[in-house]
Amino acid sequence: MIRYFASMRFAYRTLIVLVIWMCLGGLMAGGGLKPVFKAMNDLLVLDWFLEVMADKPLQAIWFIGFCILGALVLLSFIACTFTTLWKKLRQRRNRQTALVLFSLHLLFTAILLLHVISMTTGFKNGHVRAFPGDTLRLSPTRTLVVDEIRYAGSDSLLRESGGQSRIRYTRANLKPENSFARVTLLKNGKTTGKGTVRYMEPYREGSIFVCLEAFVSGKKRTGETGVRMTIVKNPVIYPFFVLYALSVLLILIYTCMTWNFRKKPDSKEI
């Protein structure tokens, strides 16, 4: 059984099904189910799943399928790494290449596990509208207070809704030096940090990130400028990026090591 999970055939088939599943998800997310998928970005995935599973059956089925396929890819990684690649590593021939390939698969296994951890730990409050003086409850122990919002940009930007913020703000129309929010983070009612958050310049405190996505106008509170923010705690974010960077490096090293033929050409090798 383990030999089957470690085989190229299993890896190849699982990858194909996962690709089809992701493209299906992509089509759903870009089509009629866009608002439903958007809701996934507002919460920690585990919280989202527990909250909306019953209300959105189609999306829940898609997500369950995605998790199952992800688990199969992980199984394939682990089985292949500790059987086939481990055997290659113990052979005397091409030991350095085998070591790089082994490490690469080990890294991707760790990355997949980090994805699972980041979906289930920490907290997330996405696309929250806040105005000066607002207090946002982030978790049972954590709160964020918006002390002050300053906005020196164009009024027309406040009225725009939807669309991509990346094709909205220029230095001329936002005036980023004078457009920002001051926030205070509290833990059990005690201040743990104060800071300024600007567009694309988050405020960080440990693994908590406060990101300012856009400036908005208060519909009910005319004349007041607010912000749209995402506040997230992701304890594995730095290892996540380090492992991804390492995997890129290892792929490049592996490519260089195997660029030329050193053995008799084998038609099975690609």
Partner: peptide, 25 residues
């Protein structure tokens, strides 16, 4: 840094993931 999440459940990100997996095929 922009939206507090390295991954988003959106068409662009799902297609990007699919593209990387396709390159592995």
């Amino acid at each position: 840094e922009g939206w507090g999440d390295p991954w988003r459940w959106s068409r662009g990100f799902l297609f990007a993931g699919a593209m990387f997996l396709l390159s592995m095929l």
